[in-house]
Design a protein around this nucleic acid. Structure first.
Length: 200
DNA sequence: ATGTCGATTCCCT
DNA sequence: GGGAATCGACATA
């Protein structure tokens, strides 16, 4: 029997991938050490959705979104970065935004990374470390240099994904912070998990 | 060359 | 729950 969790199959469609990605582990490796967290909140951005960055066609900014499933799509918004897992075949242009993770390993490194970006105010701690798309990118030092990278190389330094299962009930709701296609229920999260950015 | 617009975060009421 | 910060990508001229 083949692996129950086949990444390529699971990531073939943004909507189902967003639900399935809950419970996977995101691992950041580098000089300083290992940082890892369980994915507890996601949002799907299918290719045919007006809220999807790829909806209006390919540009320099969204180019990595058109790669095949399993690549990273990282973009900047205001001062923050957002990390997405590309889904679908080459050329389709869709992805899943990772909105929150629950720290598993390297919490001290995450705290240090978050503190580095806070000038003049007290350093974040606890759930504030990774309870939002921009926050988790700070905690894991994810920026545009990681845009387009492959997420299944477990060796070397960088960023990778480990398949896993949700530790509790996964529920869905509408997405946060968008102006188009507001009614689509493409947001998924682990019910009751403290790191989820908006519990309902 | 210039104007618009955020898949956010933080701070304030 | 609201508004400011803040800046690059993109569209328009």
């Amino acid at each position: 029997m083949k692996h129950a969790l086949d990444p390529q199959k699971i990531l073939s469609d943004a909507r189902s991938a967003a639900r399935s990605l809950i419970g996977w582990t995101l691992v950041r490796t580098g000089e300083e050490g290992v940082r890892a967290g369980r994915i507890v909140e996601t949002e799907a951005y299918p290719h045919d959705d007006p809220a999807c960055h790829a909806f209006g066609g390919r540009t320099a900014r969204n180019a990595s979104m058109f790669r095949h499933a399993g690549h990273a799509y990282v973009y900047r918004i205001h001062r923050s970065f957002c990390f997405n897992v590309v889904t679908g075949p080459e050329g389709r242009g869709e992805a899943v935004l990772i909105r929150a993770i629950e720290p598993i390993d390297g919490v001290d490194l995450m705290a240090r990374a978050r503190a580095r970006n806070t000038v003049g105010r007290k350093a974040p701690s606890g759930k504030a470390l990774t309870d939002g798309p921009g926050k988790l990118c700070q905690a894991l030092d994810i920026d545009d240099r990681l845009d387009g990278c492959w997420l299944f190389d477990t060796d070397g330094s960088g960023l990778h994904l480990l398949p896993g299962n949700a530790t509790g009930p996964v529920v869905c709701s509408t997405r946060i912070g968008i102006s188009k296609a507001r009614s689509k229920r493409y947001r998924f999260f682990l019910r009751g998990n403290p790191w989820v950015s908006r519990p309902r």
